[in-house]
């Protein structure tokens, strides 16, 4: 610190009128950080799944290859990616302030998400009905909880979308609504990212 400049005529001690930060930047960065945190939550679940994905941990119950169906998973992949793309396109309509476009995109995203979730819940319900529920074995516990955690995230996304469908016509594209729409875009895209990992790891490598 020897070379600290001495103050001179140009030295300013105060910054009146300093603009500060932008709400949208702060909110999107904050939400991004939340998602990294959430990503570690899924990472821990994947680690647990990896440990429990052995015949030992199946405890005489079914193992991965007996319960996953990669072809059906592919339809799910198309549904969730379609949903994410629909929502992302809604934010393209946002650029021009096109309310109808944004809301249409959101509704399409919701429909496709429900299709995706329908497949998933159907799988889990079938397994449970066969006596292979989450309490059957360590392996099935890991499988169910991984899939359910992702599904619960999707359900929260759907609630969030419903809220936005009310707020857009009510408030228009004010700063807060826009920030929420952008964060929801990240959140929704993130669900597809997680699904890609689940699909490859559970549905393909497990098959």
């Amino acid at each position: 610190m020897a070379h600290q400049a001495a103050p001179d005529a140009n030295t300013r001690l105060f910054a009146p009128g300093f603009a500060g930060h932008s709400q949208i930047s702060a909110r999107t960065l904050g939400f991004w950080l939340y998602m990294l945190s959430d990503a570690l939550l899924f990472t821990a679940l994947f680690a647990a799944y990896a440990v429990l994905d052995t015949p030992m941990n199946a405890a005489g119950g079914p193992i991965a290859s007996q319960i996953v169906n990669p072809v059906e998973g592919f339809w799910q992949t198309i549904a969730i990616l379609g949903s994410v793309t629909a929502y992302s396109l809604a934010t393209v309509a946002l650029k021009t302030g096109n309310r109808a476009g944004v809301m249409l995109g959101i509704v399409a995203a919701m429909v496709l998400a429900v299709v995706f979730l329908g497949f998933g819940f159907n799988d889990l319900a079938t397994l449970t009905a066969q006596g292979n529920g989450m309490d059957r074995s360590g392996y099935l516990s890991a499988y169910f909880v991984l899939i359910l955690t992702h599904a619960i995230h999707m359900l929260f996304g759907l609630i969030w979308m419903l809220v936005m469908l009310v707020q857009i016509p009510r408030d228009g594209f004010n700063e807060m609504v826009v920030a929420r729409l952008l964060n929801l875009r990240m959140f929704w895209q993130f669900q597809a990212t997680v699904w890609v990992c689940v699909y490859i790891y559970v549905y393909m490598i497990g098959a």
Partner: peptide
Amino acid sequence: GTHFFTAGMGGNLMLYTNL
């Protein structure tokens, strides 16, 4: 009633310790 860390039914105790 899952079996993540139980001693039987395919749980793994050390998985908890690890996490």
